[in-house]
Structures are given as C-alpha cells and as structure tokens.
C-alpha cells in the first residue's frame, strides 16, 4: 500500500471516530431526555406534582454525568 494512502486512511478513521463519538453523545442526550419524560409521566399518573416529578427525574442527568466521568477515568486508566 502506498504510504500516502495509508496516512489518508488513518486520517479518515480519526475523522470517523470523532463523528461517531459526537453522534453517540447526541443520541445519549436524546435518550436521556426520552427516559426522563417517560419517568415523569409515570410519576404524574399517581398524583405526584409536575415540579416534583421533574426534580426527581434530574437523577437521570446526575447518573449520566457520573457515567461519563467514569468513562473519562477509564480512558485515563488506559493511557496509564
């Protein structure tokens, strides 16, 4: 394989990772939103106020942030 072609393919893979990770991040945020809405609607059904349901559903954001910080820790661990 040509050296230039190999370098171009590396650049393509790097770009592909960046785009994929951005897409994953967007998808996860969207999923968190959907999960929160579903969670709130179940609570509202049993008579919990909308404000309180929203307050309880913030736990989803907290969990997402914690998992992302865990992922950062994992990559740090891989780097040594």
């Amino acid at each position: 394989m040509n050296k230039v072609l190999a370098v171009l393919l590396i650049l393509y893979s790097t770009l592909r990772i960046s785009v994929s990770l951005t897409w994953v991040w967007l998808t996860i945020n969207w999923r968190v939103r959907k999960a929160r809405r579903a969670f709130e609607s179940e609570l509202i059904k049993v008579g919990v106020s909308e404000d309180y349901a929203r307050r309880l559903s913030t736990n989803y954001i907290v969990l997402k942030d914690r998992l992302f910080s865990l992922k950062r820790g994992f990559f740090k661990l891989l780097r040594g």
């Binding site: 996860i28 999923r31 999960a35 579903a38 609607s41 179940e42 609570l43």
Partner: peptide, 13 residues
C-alpha cells in the same frame, strides 16, 4: 443505551 432508554425510564418511573 441500555441504561438510558425510554423503556428503562418508564420502568424506573
């Protein structure tokens, strides 16, 4: 994705 899905949210709710 297995943690953050609409279904998981509904179940937790």
């Amino acid at each position: 994705g297995s943690i953050f899905s609409e279904e998981a949210g509904r179940e937790m709710g």
